[in-house]
Nucleic acid binder design. Structure first.
Length: 140
DNA sequence: GCCAACGTTGGC
DNA sequence: GCCAACGTTGGC
């Protein structure tokens, strides 16, 4: 089992949208590193759901319910090559009782190396198992 | 609203 | 292949 973190702006697609829909197609990723992470996701992997920009914090947990396939929202290539972009599908697993803020994550020495801090603009990133366990513990 | 980080584009 | 210009993300 692998662990991940995905970002979303709450005003565009927040946790409550996710809960209302019950399932999300994680489309629109247009960065190769993030795309590679999407492709590495496997059914049942656990995914931290992070709100960026306003009140940056981890708000809940999701799981991967469908592995990567081509992004239907990608512009078709005029030469007919298949799109390099892909999506996965996620379902909500659990809302955090207490969202874990970016400030808390930055203040925790064990989390000093998470990509969230090291690579602030990456929108889909892997999380190590012990880092994941700690963040979940902090949220509940 | 500002700005730093950083990915992409395009001229040369 | 280099690098300047530019656009976007996201923290503050």
């Amino acid at each position: 089992m692998n662990y991940w973190l995905v970002k979303s702006e709450p005003e565009t697609y927040g946790w409550h949208h996710f809960i209302e829909q019950g399932r999300a197609t994680w489309d629109g990723v247009r960065n190769y590193q993030a795309r590679n992470n999407l492709q590495a996701m496997r059914q049942g992997d656990q995914v931290l759901f992070y709100h960026s920009v306003n009140n940056p914090q981890v708000v809940g947990l999701a799981s991967v319910v469908c592995e990567s396939y081509p992004d239907p929202t990608a512009q078709p290539d005029p030469t007919g090559k298949p799109t390099p972009w892909c999506v996965v599908e996620l379902e909500p697993a659990m809302a955090f009782e207490k969202p874990v803020t970016l400030a808390q994550i930055k203040a925790e020495p064990m989390l000093a190396n998470v990509a969230l801090i090291k690579q602030s603009r990456l929108s889909v990133m892997p999380i190590k198992p012990d880092e994941f366990d700690l963040i979940v513990k902090m949220g509940n």
